[in-house]
Design a protein around this nucleic acid. Structure first.
Lengths: 228, 228
DNA sequence: CCGCGTTCGCGAACATTGATTGCGAACTAG
DNA sequence: CTAGTTCGCAATCAATGTTCGCGAACGCGG
């Protein structure tokens, strides 16, 4: 798809939305902004879930028609990108203590809190890269925390990607207890039929606390405290 | 939704599809099977991607109408579940060497190969739990590998979940080079504007090999060789 | 061999979705 | 004030998931 501009030029919309200018300097000014639309979309998602974020729904919430949204966004995916990066702005990136492990675990736990506040977020962050302005800011922060760390840049990026994958995945598991229960019922059925001794012998730990903090510590240290 | 049966009973379809019987013993026999439909759906997905897996498309490939599929499946999500578990049958689970770390890394690398063969798979495994018969089989295998390991059951399950999350996430990143390039362009733009020193100072390692095997080793050992 | 109960196949139909288009109104620049 | 441009909006299109009703196919009991 191509968008024509006042200068007669043309912009390939295969770029991320943040690279495309918002509005044009001339002509009738827009009555809404990407920010405003994004906030409304996030509110709708918090209330009705991700499938509730239809162009018609969001537009209605804004008191307008569906077609109007396409003046601000090329397609629905753009809107989803905006939403994901919007909530990435909820990070508090000024807690650095100087201990890289503590700081990275803190980022991971903050990420989980964000995912908990917005149960629709895992589906987005797991399916697409989050590389909007706020996502970039978080990445820069992590790199700053690891600035004095001896690991190579590649290793740091791998650790960052893994941190993200683990947190988002855990958050998704938390978010859909329905799926969990359906799975549990099926597993119980399979176990009841025999033939899966180790699955049958499984029993949950008594009084297991929150596993994520220690898991994150172990993963990050395993990845970055290279004792191969 | 509810499905009536010959005995006058009723079955809640909120169960996973594998808990619901295929066909009914009486009446006109079905001319197709879940297996057959699943195989066709997988083939369509391999060719046209996940959005190509529409009820009409799959039905057409089977030489029938869309409505017919609903005799075998309650909804599209059921079909996706079937597909995900179907390819989970591609695991070779008879390679156990006795060394749990080697064996788990092997499972992870096998999972990546499966994801590579079916580029649509990450979107499924990341979004929903894979707990069909074949998925259960893989879980049982992992538990068998870890049978003599001193870690607690909870720790083992956490490690398994993390293994899955990491592999699927890495596979997704591999699968969509388009997104990667768009992100790269935006990051380059941000860096060019200054203000992100650590991001700017980033340079990729020369001749970096495949990072996943060592990453998996480090993560799994970090999680299961408890040296807190 | 035949009817009966039940299921299956199938096409038409419905609601909803993302996206496009054409036009009049609103706005800025000169 | 005029020219040029963009914006808002409603109508519209194509495609999707899903439901429904009906006639035909089948197995079983007589």
């Amino acid at each position: 798809m191509r968008t024509a501009f006042a200068n007669g030029g043309v912009m390939e919309s295969s770029e991320l939305i943040w690279l495309r200018p918002e509005g044009a300097g001339v002509g009738r000014p827009a009555s809404r902004s990407r920010e405003e639309i994004t906030e409304v979309a996030v509110r709708v998602a918090d209330r009705d879930g991700l499938p509730g974020v239809s162009m018609r729904n969001v537009a209605a919430e804004l008191g307008t028609g569906a077609g109007t949204l396409y003046r601000y966004v090329d397609n629905r995916d753009d809107l989803l990108d905006l939403m994901a990066d919007h909530v990435a702005g909820e990070f508090a990136l000024d807690n650095a203590t100087g201990d890289w492990l503590d700081d990275l675990v803190d980022v991971g736990l903050q990420a989980r809190e964000i995912h908990r506040r917005h149960p629709w977020l895992p589906e987005l962050t797991l399916t697409r890269p989050v590389t909007g302005p706020n996502g970039i800011e978080a990445t820069e922060y992590v790199l700053a925390v690891l600035a004095d760390h001896p690991a190579s840049d590649s290793e740091k990026l791998v650790a960052l990607a893994m941190l993200h994958a683990v947190v988002a995945s855990a958050a998704r598991a938390e978010a859909s207890t329905v799926d969990m229960m359906r799975s549990a019922r099926f597993i119980a059925h399979v176990v009841a039929q025999g033939g899966h001794p180790h699955l049958a012998a499984l029993n949950p730990d008594p009084a297991g606390g929150d596993p994520l903090p220690t898991a994150l510590r172990r993963i990050l240290r395993g990845l970055l405290s290279g004792v191969d």
